[in-house]
Design a protein around this nucleic acid. Structure first.
Lengths: 197, 197
DNA sequence: CTCTTCGTGAGAGTTGACTCTCATCAACTT
DNA sequence: AAGTTGATGAGAGTCAACTCTCACGAAGAG
């Protein structure tokens, strides 16, 4: 009785694996391409994933590191600014690496705000984890998280590269700076810094 | 000899006008819809605009106010933070009003980074104008502009509404706060504020 | 008042995102 | 072994973004 269950699981994994492969190689991530690569009919692919967005969601989820892993370099630090800088860099580097998949995801969801739940939102876990050692006023913390949600994002990266014309490295550096500035402003660290001067 | 020229101009304007109408009414902005509404064949629409993005670009351009007009409320102010806050609110409100067109524009360009030149980039003129009275270090100013380009954007607005689940008003308020914080951090005003305390 | 030019429309064709139906075949059941 | 269930494939169909070709018809030129 488990044969069919296993078969389904194998099919599902094959589809996801094919999607990841396409994303990794930077190829076009389309249902026909995924189905062909997974040796499955397009109809079957749609049976497992109602639309491209949900497929991309699952495929990308597996390519993303956990907040813990991403913040490992600053595991020993309690400085929110440092942790946020690290988080920003980690997220944007991953976005850059899996750009084609992320862009396809945005394209598939931007015109359907209602179904935006299909977006993974990795940034939130990362931001929460980065700000963990921060003991700030609830309202201040909530606002900071929103500030950072805008900056620590694929959208921010693509704004910097596509519209501002920055190189990927410069774009990441810029976003890291922005995120750090916001964090310092919210935690009052820059006031202390100024006081020292 | 000008009849045909006039005819072409009239056709072009009809197409753009139809597009704006669709955007204003929040309807789906697609080539078939635009063509039908403009009483023109789809083929003709494509003759005037090679793709949806270029049509949207021109249609949206005419719906946007000039930086001067948008910043009229703070024309008398030299406070960068105030001016930036006003600019943010102005841009995001317009994005909100013409949301369907802007979303279609993003969808049409996000997967083609190279042709991102098709994006209008209204934010840049607005940011420059808002920071005009600011006499800061060149590098600091350049970084601030990049910081703001990420925040004063349709992408930021949609991140806040679609992913963070904020209402349009709350999203704008949050972005305004973020933009203000960044501006104050760059101009050192928050240090002065802290010094007063 | 022809003859040419050219703006347009009509329509076919391609590709991707989906949706739906129908036939097949292997697997689980009795 | 025979029947039923369920996973899959094949293929048609819709809609939008484009691309291309062909033919019509009106404006401008001689």
């Amino acid at each position: 009785m488990s044969s069919r269950v296993n078969q389904k699981e194998r099919t599902r994994r094959a589809i996801v694996a094919a999607t990841r492969e396409l994303i990794r190689t930077g190829g076009e991530v389309t249902m026909p391409a995924v189905a062909k690569s997974a040796l499955v009919s397009e109809a079957t692919a749609y049976r497992y994933f109602p639309d491209l967005a949900s497929l991309l969601r699952e495929a990308l989820a597996g390519l993303w590191p956990s907040p813990e892993a991403a913040l490992a370099p600053v595991a020993g630090s309690d400085d929110p600014a440092e942790r946020v800088a690290c988080a920003t860099q980690a997220l944007l580097r991953h976005v850059l690496t899996y750009q084609s998949g992320v862009r396809a995801m945005i394209a598939a969801t931007i015109t359907r705000p209602g179904e935006a739940a299909a977006r993974p939102g990795h940034r939130f876990g990362l931001i929460d984890h980065a700000l963990r050692p921060l003991a700030a006023d609830t309202a201040v913390l909530a606002q900071l998280k929103r500030d950072l949600a805008v900056v620590i994002s694929a959208e921010a990266l693509f704004t910097l590269t596509d519209l501002c014309g920055l190189s990927p490295e410069d774009a990441i550096a810029s976003a890291v700076h922005t995120a750090r500035t916001l964090t310092q402003a919210a935690t009052g660290e820059n006031r202390l810094a100024a006081a020292r001067v």
